[in-house]
Design a protein around this nucleic acid. Structure first.
Lengths: 215, 215
DNA sequence: TAGATTGTTAATCGATTAACAATC
DNA sequence: TAGATTGTTAATCGATTAACAATC
Protein backbone atom coordinates (compact mmCIF):
# COMPACT_ATOMS: atom_id res chain seq x y z
CA UNK A 1 0.00 0.00 0.00
CA UNK A 2 1.20 3.52 -0.72
CA UNK A 3 2.10 5.80 2.19
CA UNK A 4 -1.00 7.22 3.78
CA UNK A 5 -2.71 10.55 3.21
CA UNK A 6 -0.85 12.17 0.32
CA UNK A 7 -1.90 15.81 0.16
CA UNK A 8 -4.08 16.98 -2.67
CA UNK A 9 -1.45 19.51 -3.75
CA UNK A 10 1.01 16.70 -4.40
CA UNK A 11 -1.50 14.54 -6.26
CA UNK A 12 -2.41 17.40 -8.60
CA UNK A 13 1.23 17.75 -9.60
CA UNK A 14 1.72 14.06 -10.42
CA UNK A 15 0.09 14.06 -13.89
CA UNK A 16 2.27 17.00 -14.86
CA UNK A 17 5.44 15.20 -13.71
CA UNK A 18 4.35 12.20 -15.72
CA UNK A 19 3.78 14.33 -18.79
CA UNK A 20 7.15 16.10 -18.54
CA UNK A 21 9.03 12.86 -17.96
CA UNK A 22 7.38 11.45 -21.07
CA UNK A 23 8.59 14.40 -23.11
CA UNK A 24 12.08 14.16 -21.65
CA UNK A 25 12.25 10.46 -22.49
CA UNK A 26 10.97 11.24 -25.98
CA UNK A 27 13.78 13.79 -26.34
CA UNK A 28 16.42 11.23 -25.38
CA UNK A 29 17.03 12.14 -21.73
CA UNK A 30 18.29 9.20 -19.67
CA UNK A 31 18.85 10.90 -16.34
CA UNK A 32 17.74 14.20 -14.79
CA UNK A 33 18.42 15.95 -11.50
CA UNK A 34 15.71 17.56 -9.39
CA UNK A 35 17.33 20.93 -10.12
CA UNK A 36 17.20 20.52 -13.90
CA UNK A 37 13.63 19.25 -13.79
CA UNK A 38 12.66 22.14 -11.53
CA UNK A 39 13.94 24.63 -14.07
CA UNK A 40 12.00 22.99 -16.90
CA UNK A 41 8.77 22.81 -14.92
CA UNK A 42 8.92 26.08 -13.03
CA UNK A 43 9.02 24.50 -9.57
CA UNK A 44 11.69 24.30 -6.85
CA UNK A 45 14.03 21.32 -6.66
CA UNK A 46 13.07 20.96 -3.01
CA UNK A 47 9.43 20.57 -3.85
CA UNK A 48 10.14 17.95 -6.48
CA UNK A 49 12.21 15.84 -4.08
CA UNK A 50 9.59 16.22 -1.35
CA UNK A 51 6.86 15.17 -3.76
CA UNK A 52 8.67 12.07 -4.97
CA UNK A 53 9.60 11.04 -1.45
CA UNK A 54 5.92 10.76 -0.56
CA UNK A 55 5.95 7.54 -2.55
CA UNK A 56 9.43 6.12 -2.18
CA UNK A 57 13.09 6.64 -3.00
CA UNK A 58 13.30 6.83 -6.76
CA UNK A 59 16.62 8.65 -7.12
CA UNK A 60 20.26 8.03 -6.47
CA UNK A 61 22.58 10.42 -4.63
CA UNK A 62 25.12 12.07 -6.90
CA UNK A 63 23.26 10.92 -10.01
CA UNK A 64 19.67 12.12 -9.97
CA UNK A 65 16.71 10.21 -11.36
CA UNK A 66 16.51 7.76 -14.23
CA UNK A 67 13.90 9.35 -16.50
CA UNK A 68 12.36 6.15 -17.81
CA UNK A 69 12.26 4.39 -14.42
CA UNK A 70 10.80 7.41 -12.66
CA UNK A 71 8.12 7.80 -15.31
CA UNK A 72 7.11 4.16 -14.92
CA UNK A 73 6.96 4.51 -11.12
CA UNK A 74 4.77 7.61 -11.29
CA UNK A 75 2.63 5.86 -13.87
CA UNK A 76 2.07 3.02 -11.42
CA UNK A 77 1.20 5.46 -8.63
CA UNK A 78 -1.36 7.05 -10.95
CA UNK A 79 -2.75 3.67 -11.94
CA UNK A 80 -1.78 4.05 -15.60
CA UNK A 81 -0.36 0.53 -15.78
CA UNK A 82 -3.86 -0.87 -16.17
CA UNK A 83 -7.05 0.14 -17.96
CA UNK A 84 -10.34 0.57 -16.16
CA UNK A 85 -13.49 0.08 -18.27
CA UNK A 86 -15.34 3.40 -18.65
CA UNK A 87 -18.64 4.55 -20.15
CA UNK A 88 -19.86 7.86 -21.54
CA UNK A 89 -23.22 9.29 -20.50
CA UNK A 90 -24.48 11.91 -22.91
CA UNK A 91 -23.15 11.69 -26.48
CA UNK A 92 -23.99 15.23 -27.58
CA UNK A 93 -21.46 17.74 -28.83
CA UNK A 94 -19.29 17.72 -25.75
CA UNK A 95 -19.51 14.02 -25.01
CA UNK A 96 -18.66 13.14 -28.59
CA UNK A 97 -15.67 15.48 -28.57
CA UNK A 98 -14.34 14.10 -25.27
CA UNK A 99 -14.77 10.52 -26.45
CA UNK A 100 -12.85 11.10 -29.67
CA UNK A 101 -10.29 13.57 -28.38
CA UNK A 102 -8.97 11.89 -25.23
CA UNK A 103 -6.30 9.21 -25.33
CA UNK A 104 -8.02 6.96 -22.80
CA UNK A 105 -5.56 4.09 -22.97
CA UNK A 106 -2.71 6.31 -21.81
CA UNK A 107 -4.75 7.72 -18.93
CA UNK A 108 -5.64 4.39 -17.36
CA UNK A 109 -9.06 3.86 -18.91
CA UNK A 110 -10.82 2.01 -21.72
CA UNK A 111 -13.99 3.51 -23.18
CA UNK A 112 -16.35 0.59 -23.75
CA UNK A 113 -19.78 2.19 -24.08
CA UNK A 114 -21.70 5.39 -24.83
CA UNK A 115 -25.29 6.21 -23.88
CA UNK A 116 -27.82 8.93 -24.62
CA UNK A 117 -31.55 9.64 -24.29
CA UNK A 118 -31.93 11.39 -27.64
CA UNK A 119 -33.36 9.06 -30.36
CA UNK A 120 -31.50 11.11 -33.00
CA UNK A 121 -28.20 10.22 -31.36
CA UNK A 122 -28.91 6.61 -30.33
CA UNK A 123 -27.52 4.20 -32.90
CA UNK A 124 -24.96 6.67 -34.28
CA UNK A 125 -21.32 5.67 -34.54
CA UNK A 126 -18.89 7.19 -32.05
CA UNK A 127 -15.38 6.07 -32.91
CA UNK A 128 -15.54 2.30 -32.58
CA UNK A 129 -18.67 2.44 -30.46
CA UNK A 130 -22.35 2.68 -31.28
CA UNK A 131 -24.38 4.97 -29.01
CA UNK A 132 -26.90 2.98 -26.94
CA UNK A 133 -30.14 4.03 -25.30
CA UNK A 134 -29.81 4.94 -21.64
CA UNK A 135 -32.48 2.27 -21.00
CA UNK A 136 -29.85 -0.38 -21.68
CA UNK A 137 -27.51 0.86 -18.96
CA UNK A 138 -28.59 -1.72 -16.38
CA UNK A 139 -28.08 -4.79 -18.53
CA UNK A 140 -24.90 -3.34 -20.03
CA UNK A 141 -23.32 -2.74 -16.61
CA UNK A 142 -24.36 -6.17 -15.36
CA UNK A 143 -22.61 -7.74 -18.33
CA UNK A 144 -19.58 -5.51 -18.99
CA UNK A 145 -18.93 -4.20 -15.47
CA UNK A 146 -17.69 -0.69 -16.22
CA UNK A 147 -16.15 1.02 -13.19
CA UNK A 148 -15.85 4.64 -14.37
CA UNK A 149 -18.23 7.08 -16.07
CA UNK A 150 -17.99 10.36 -17.97
CA UNK A 151 -20.93 12.67 -17.30
CA UNK A 152 -21.82 14.92 -20.23
CA UNK A 153 -25.54 15.24 -19.53
CA UNK A 154 -27.62 18.32 -18.65
CA UNK A 155 -27.33 19.48 -15.05
CA UNK A 156 -30.89 18.61 -14.01
CA UNK A 157 -30.60 14.95 -14.99
CA UNK A 158 -27.17 14.50 -13.38
CA UNK A 159 -28.09 13.82 -9.76
CA UNK A 160 -30.56 11.03 -10.48
CA UNK A 161 -28.24 9.48 -13.05
CA UNK A 162 -25.36 9.39 -10.57
CA UNK A 163 -27.44 7.41 -8.09
CA UNK A 164 -28.40 4.94 -10.80
CA UNK A 165 -24.79 4.54 -11.87
CA UNK A 166 -23.58 3.99 -8.33
CA UNK A 167 -26.13 1.22 -8.00
CA UNK A 168 -24.73 -0.21 -11.23
CA UNK A 169 -21.27 -0.36 -9.66
CA UNK A 170 -19.64 2.81 -10.99
CA UNK A 171 -16.84 3.94 -8.68
CA UNK A 172 -15.33 6.92 -10.52
CA UNK A 173 -16.98 9.95 -12.12
CA UNK A 174 -15.45 12.38 -14.59
CA UNK A 175 -18.04 15.11 -14.28
CA UNK A 176 -18.52 17.74 -17.02
CA UNK A 177 -21.99 18.83 -15.89
CA UNK A 178 -22.66 22.05 -13.98
CA UNK A 179 -23.89 19.92 -11.12
CA UNK A 180 -21.38 20.01 -8.25
CA UNK A 181 -20.87 16.34 -7.61
CA UNK A 182 -20.13 15.95 -3.90
CA UNK A 183 -18.11 13.03 -2.67
CA UNK A 184 -20.89 12.05 -0.32
CA UNK A 185 -20.90 8.40 -1.28
CA UNK A 186 -17.88 6.88 0.44
CA UNK A 187 -15.79 4.78 -1.87
CA UNK A 188 -16.45 6.87 -4.98
CA UNK A 189 -13.85 9.01 -6.76
CA UNK A 190 -14.95 12.26 -8.38
CA UNK A 191 -13.23 14.69 -10.71
CA UNK A 192 -15.31 17.79 -11.40
CA UNK A 193 -14.16 19.62 -14.53
CA UNK A 194 -16.35 22.73 -14.64
CA UNK A 195 -15.23 24.31 -17.89
CA UNK A 196 -17.42 27.32 -17.13
CA UNK A 197 -15.51 28.06 -13.93
CA UNK A 198 -12.27 27.80 -15.86
CA UNK A 199 -13.40 30.39 -18.39
CA UNK A 200 -14.70 32.63 -15.60
CA UNK A 201 -11.27 32.48 -13.97
CA UNK A 202 -9.73 33.57 -17.26
CA UNK A 203 -12.10 36.54 -17.28
CA UNK A 204 -10.81 37.54 -13.85
CA UNK A 205 -7.22 37.17 -15.00
CA UNK A 206 -7.81 39.28 -18.07
CA UNK A 207 -9.59 42.03 -16.18
CA UNK A 208 -7.08 42.18 -13.40
CA UNK A 209 -4.33 42.38 -15.99
CA UNK A 210 -5.74 45.38 -17.79
CA UNK A 211 -6.40 47.10 -14.47
CA UNK A 212 -2.80 46.68 -13.44
CA UNK A 213 -1.51 47.96 -16.75
CA UNK A 214 -3.66 51.07 -16.74
CA UNK A 215 -2.26 52.11 -13.35
CA UNK B 1 -8.76 49.33 -8.38
CA UNK B 2 -9.29 46.12 -6.43
CA UNK B 3 -7.12 45.40 -3.39
CA UNK B 4 -3.74 44.13 -4.42
CA UNK B 5 -2.46 40.57 -4.67
CA UNK B 6 -5.46 38.37 -4.09
CA UNK B 7 -4.23 34.82 -3.56
CA UNK B 8 -4.83 32.24 -6.21
CA UNK B 9 -6.76 30.05 -3.76
CA UNK B 10 -9.31 32.81 -3.29
CA UNK B 11 -9.65 33.55 -7.00
CA UNK B 12 -10.31 29.88 -7.80
CA UNK B 13 -13.25 29.90 -5.37
CA UNK B 14 -14.91 32.99 -6.85
CA UNK B 15 -16.58 31.32 -9.87
CA UNK B 16 -18.07 28.74 -7.54
CA UNK B 17 -19.47 31.42 -5.22
CA UNK B 18 -20.93 33.12 -8.26
CA UNK B 19 -22.54 29.90 -9.42
CA UNK B 20 -24.04 29.06 -6.02
CA UNK B 21 -25.40 32.58 -5.54
CA UNK B 22 -27.06 32.32 -8.94
CA UNK B 23 -28.77 29.10 -7.91
CA UNK B 24 -29.83 30.57 -4.57
CA UNK B 25 -31.31 33.60 -6.31
CA UNK B 26 -33.05 31.30 -8.76
CA UNK B 27 -34.54 29.42 -5.81
CA UNK B 28 -35.91 32.59 -4.27
CA UNK B 29 -33.30 33.32 -1.60
CA UNK B 30 -33.06 37.02 -0.73
CA UNK B 31 -30.49 36.89 2.06
CA UNK B 32 -27.97 34.34 3.26
CA UNK B 33 -25.53 34.16 6.15
CA UNK B 34 -21.96 32.99 5.78
CA UNK B 35 -22.83 30.02 7.96
CA UNK B 36 -25.73 28.89 5.80
CA UNK B 37 -23.72 29.36 2.60
CA UNK B 38 -20.81 27.46 4.14
CA UNK B 39 -23.06 24.47 4.78
CA UNK B 40 -24.36 24.47 1.22
CA UNK B 41 -20.90 24.76 -0.33
CA UNK B 42 -18.89 22.59 2.02
CA UNK B 43 -16.61 25.37 3.24
CA UNK B 44 -16.20 27.13 6.60
CA UNK B 45 -18.08 30.34 7.33
CA UNK B 46 -14.77 31.91 8.32
CA UNK B 47 -13.27 31.23 4.93
CA UNK B 48 -16.24 32.70 3.13
CA UNK B 49 -16.09 35.92 5.13
CA UNK B 50 -12.32 36.13 4.66
CA UNK B 51 -12.71 35.60 0.92
CA UNK B 52 -15.34 38.28 0.46
CA UNK B 53 -13.42 40.75 2.60
CA UNK B 54 -10.55 40.62 0.13
CA UNK B 55 -12.72 42.76 -2.12
CA UNK B 56 -14.85 44.88 0.21
CA UNK B 57 -17.60 44.79 2.79
CA UNK B 58 -20.60 43.22 1.09
CA UNK B 59 -22.54 42.08 4.16
CA UNK B 60 -24.37 43.62 7.06
CA UNK B 61 -23.90 42.65 10.70
CA UNK B 62 -26.85 40.77 12.12
CA UNK B 63 -28.33 40.24 8.67
CA UNK B 64 -25.88 38.46 6.41
CA UNK B 65 -25.53 39.04 2.69
CA UNK B 66 -28.10 40.09 0.12
CA UNK B 67 -27.91 37.27 -2.42
CA UNK B 68 -28.61 39.33 -5.52
CA UNK B 69 -26.32 42.22 -4.56
CA UNK B 70 -23.48 39.89 -3.61
CA UNK B 71 -23.80 37.99 -6.86
CA UNK B 72 -23.60 41.21 -8.84
CA UNK B 73 -20.54 42.35 -6.90
CA UNK B 74 -18.70 39.07 -7.45
CA UNK B 75 -19.73 39.22 -11.10
CA UNK B 76 -18.06 42.62 -11.38
CA UNK B 77 -14.91 41.34 -9.67
CA UNK B 78 -14.81 38.49 -12.21
CA UNK B 79 -15.40 40.88 -15.11
CA UNK B 80 -18.72 39.30 -16.07
CA UNK B 81 -20.42 42.67 -16.45
CA UNK B 82 -18.86 43.10 -19.88
CA UNK B 83 -18.09 40.84 -22.84
CA UNK B 84 -14.61 40.51 -24.28
CA UNK B 85 -14.41 39.52 -27.96
CA UNK B 86 -12.92 36.03 -28.28
CA UNK B 87 -11.84 33.75 -31.13
CA UNK B 88 -11.49 29.99 -31.49
CA UNK B 89 -8.37 28.45 -32.97
CA UNK B 90 -8.93 24.91 -34.17
CA UNK B 91 -12.53 23.97 -35.03
CA UNK B 92 -12.14 20.20 -34.89
CA UNK B 93 -14.16 17.95 -32.59
CA UNK B 94 -13.14 19.59 -29.36
CA UNK B 95 -13.15 23.19 -30.60
CA UNK B 96 -16.59 22.75 -32.11
CA UNK B 97 -17.94 21.24 -28.89
CA UNK B 98 -16.50 24.02 -26.73
CA UNK B 99 -17.85 26.70 -29.06
CA UNK B 100 -21.38 25.30 -29.00
CA UNK B 101 -21.45 24.07 -25.40
CA UNK B 102 -20.19 27.09 -23.43
CA UNK B 103 -22.44 29.99 -22.50
CA UNK B 104 -19.86 32.66 -23.39
CA UNK B 105 -22.06 35.66 -22.69
CA UNK B 106 -22.48 34.68 -19.06
CA UNK B 107 -18.75 34.11 -18.62
CA UNK B 108 -17.66 37.56 -19.80
CA UNK B 109 -16.86 36.73 -23.41
CA UNK B 110 -18.30 36.97 -26.91
CA UNK B 111 -17.20 34.44 -29.51
CA UNK B 112 -16.77 36.39 -32.74
CA UNK B 113 -14.60 34.12 -34.91
CA UNK B 114 -13.38 30.56 -35.52
CA UNK B 115 -10.30 29.48 -37.48
CA UNK B 116 -8.78 26.26 -38.75
CA UNK B 117 -6.12 25.02 -41.16
CA UNK B 118 -8.11 22.06 -42.48
CA UNK B 119 -9.77 22.81 -45.87
CA UNK B 120 -12.53 20.32 -45.00
CA UNK B 121 -13.46 22.42 -41.96
CA UNK B 122 -12.96 25.91 -43.40
CA UNK B 123 -16.25 27.37 -44.57
CA UNK B 124 -18.37 25.11 -42.36
CA UNK B 125 -21.01 26.63 -40.09
CA UNK B 126 -20.28 26.70 -36.36
CA UNK B 127 -23.30 28.06 -34.56
CA UNK B 128 -23.70 31.56 -35.96
CA UNK B 129 -20.12 31.65 -37.21
CA UNK B 130 -18.46 30.38 -40.37
CA UNK B 131 -15.02 28.81 -39.88
CA UNK B 132 -12.32 30.91 -41.54
CA UNK B 133 -8.86 29.96 -42.77
CA UNK B 134 -6.07 30.62 -40.30
CA UNK B 135 -4.49 32.74 -43.05
CA UNK B 136 -7.12 35.38 -42.43
CA UNK B 137 -6.22 35.77 -38.76
CA UNK B 138 -4.09 38.90 -39.28
CA UNK B 139 -6.66 40.91 -41.17
CA UNK B 140 -9.48 39.66 -38.92
CA UNK B 141 -7.70 40.76 -35.75
CA UNK B 142 -6.76 44.13 -37.23
CA UNK B 143 -10.41 44.73 -38.01
CA UNK B 144 -12.35 43.07 -35.16
CA UNK B 145 -9.78 43.39 -32.36
CA UNK B 146 -10.43 40.17 -30.43
CA UNK B 147 -8.70 40.13 -27.02
CA UNK B 148 -9.08 36.47 -26.01
CA UNK B 149 -8.44 33.14 -27.75
CA UNK B 150 -9.40 29.49 -27.26
CA UNK B 151 -6.63 27.10 -28.27
CA UNK B 152 -7.90 23.75 -29.58
CA UNK B 153 -5.03 23.02 -31.96
CA UNK B 154 -2.48 20.17 -31.91
CA UNK B 155 0.32 20.58 -29.41
CA UNK B 156 3.10 21.06 -31.92
CA UNK B 157 1.47 24.03 -33.62
CA UNK B 158 0.53 25.75 -30.36
CA UNK B 159 3.74 27.58 -29.49
CA UNK B 160 4.13 29.31 -32.84
CA UNK B 161 0.44 30.18 -32.96
CA UNK B 162 0.58 31.78 -29.53
CA UNK B 163 3.35 34.11 -30.63
CA UNK B 164 1.37 35.11 -33.71
CA UNK B 165 -1.73 35.76 -31.63
CA UNK B 166 0.15 37.88 -29.10
CA UNK B 167 1.42 40.00 -31.99
CA UNK B 168 -2.20 40.31 -33.11
CA UNK B 169 -3.15 41.73 -29.71
CA UNK B 170 -4.54 38.67 -27.90
CA UNK B 171 -4.23 39.10 -24.13
CA UNK B 172 -5.99 36.01 -22.77
CA UNK B 173 -5.61 32.34 -23.67
CA UNK B 174 -7.95 29.48 -22.80
CA UNK B 175 -5.60 26.64 -23.56
CA UNK B 176 -6.90 23.11 -24.30
CA UNK B 177 -3.69 21.90 -25.97
CA UNK B 178 -1.20 19.60 -24.25
CA UNK B 179 1.36 22.39 -24.57
CA UNK B 180 2.04 23.93 -21.15
CA UNK B 181 1.50 27.58 -21.87
CA UNK B 182 3.82 29.50 -19.57
CA UNK B 183 2.93 32.99 -18.53
CA UNK B 184 6.25 34.26 -19.82
CA UNK B 185 4.80 37.15 -21.75
CA UNK B 186 3.98 39.79 -19.14
CA UNK B 187 0.50 41.20 -19.53
CA UNK B 188 -1.06 37.99 -20.83
CA UNK B 189 -3.59 35.89 -18.91
CA UNK B 190 -3.52 32.11 -19.31
CA UNK B 191 -5.88 29.36 -18.22
CA UNK B 192 -4.53 25.88 -18.96
CA UNK B 193 -7.28 23.27 -18.96
CA UNK B 194 -5.39 19.97 -19.51
CA UNK B 195 -8.26 17.52 -19.68
CA UNK B 196 -5.76 14.69 -19.80
CA UNK B 197 -4.31 15.63 -16.41
CA UNK B 198 -7.81 15.76 -15.01
CA UNK B 199 -8.57 12.22 -16.16
CA UNK B 200 -5.20 11.03 -14.87
CA UNK B 201 -6.06 12.47 -11.46
CA UNK B 202 -9.30 10.52 -11.53
CA UNK B 203 -7.30 7.38 -12.21
CA UNK B 204 -5.24 8.07 -9.09
CA UNK B 205 -8.39 8.67 -7.05
CA UNK B 206 -9.98 5.46 -8.26
CA UNK B 207 -6.91 3.36 -7.59
CA UNK B 208 -6.28 4.80 -4.17
CA UNK B 209 -9.90 4.13 -3.31
CA UNK B 210 -9.79 0.46 -4.17
CA UNK B 211 -6.47 0.07 -2.35
CA UNK B 212 -7.94 1.52 0.83
CA UNK B 213 -11.01 -0.68 0.62
CA UNK B 214 -9.06 -3.87 0.16
CA UNK B 215 -7.11 -3.23 3.38
C1' DT C 1 38.52 9.85 -3.70
C1' DA C 2 35.97 14.22 -4.71
C1' DG C 3 31.88 16.08 -6.58
C1' DA C 4 27.20 15.81 -7.10
C1' DT C 5 22.75 15.15 -5.70
C1' DT C 6 19.56 12.78 -3.10
C1' DG C 7 16.51 11.99 1.14
C1' DT C 8 15.07 14.24 5.12
C1' DT C 9 14.85 17.42 8.91
C1' DA C 10 14.21 22.19 10.26
C1' DA C 11 12.63 26.95 9.12
C1' DT C 12 9.57 29.80 6.71
C1' DC C 13 5.74 31.11 4.55
C1' DG C 14 0.89 31.30 3.44
C1' DA C 15 -3.75 29.77 3.92
C1' DT C 16 -7.40 28.23 6.87
C1' DT C 17 -9.82 28.29 11.12
C1' DA C 18 -11.18 30.24 15.55
C1' DA C 19 -12.48 33.98 18.31
C1' DC C 20 -14.55 38.21 19.37
C1' DA C 21 -15.45 43.10 19.31
C1' DA C 22 -18.22 46.06 16.30
C1' DT C 23 -22.67 46.95 14.74
C1' DC C 24 -26.89 46.30 12.28
C1' DT D 1 -33.07 46.69 23.20
C1' DA D 2 -31.41 41.86 22.41
C1' DG D 3 -29.95 38.63 19.05
C1' DA D 4 -27.57 37.74 15.10
C1' DT D 5 -23.91 38.00 12.12
C1' DT D 6 -20.42 40.52 10.08
C1' DG D 7 -15.47 42.27 9.59
C1' DT D 8 -11.09 41.50 11.37
C1' DT D 9 -7.44 40.07 14.40
C1' DA D 10 -5.07 36.17 16.44
C1' DA D 11 -4.04 31.14 16.50
C1' DT D 12 -3.46 27.04 14.03
C1' DC D 13 -2.52 24.26 10.52
C1' DG D 14 -0.39 22.72 6.28
C1' DA D 15 2.53 23.35 2.37
C1' DT D 16 6.73 25.16 0.50
C1' DT D 17 11.47 26.27 0.84
C1' DA D 18 16.07 25.98 2.80
C1' DA D 19 19.74 23.43 4.66
C1' DC D 20 22.66 19.62 5.22
C1' DA D 21 24.13 15.01 6.44
C1' DA D 22 24.09 10.65 3.94
C1' DT D 23 25.78 8.37 0.06
C1' DC D 24 26.33 7.16 -4.69
Amino acid sequence: MSKNSISNSVIRRLPRYYRFLGELEHNGYVRISSRELSEKMGLTASQIRQDFNCFGEFGQQGYGYNVSDLRIEIGKILGLDKQTPMILLGAGNLGKAIATHIDFHNKGFDLIGAFDVNPDIIGKELGELKVKSIDEIGTFCAEKKPVAAILCVPMNSAEKLVNTLIECGIKAFWNFTHYDLKVTHKGVAVENVHLGDSLTTLSYGLNNLTENESV
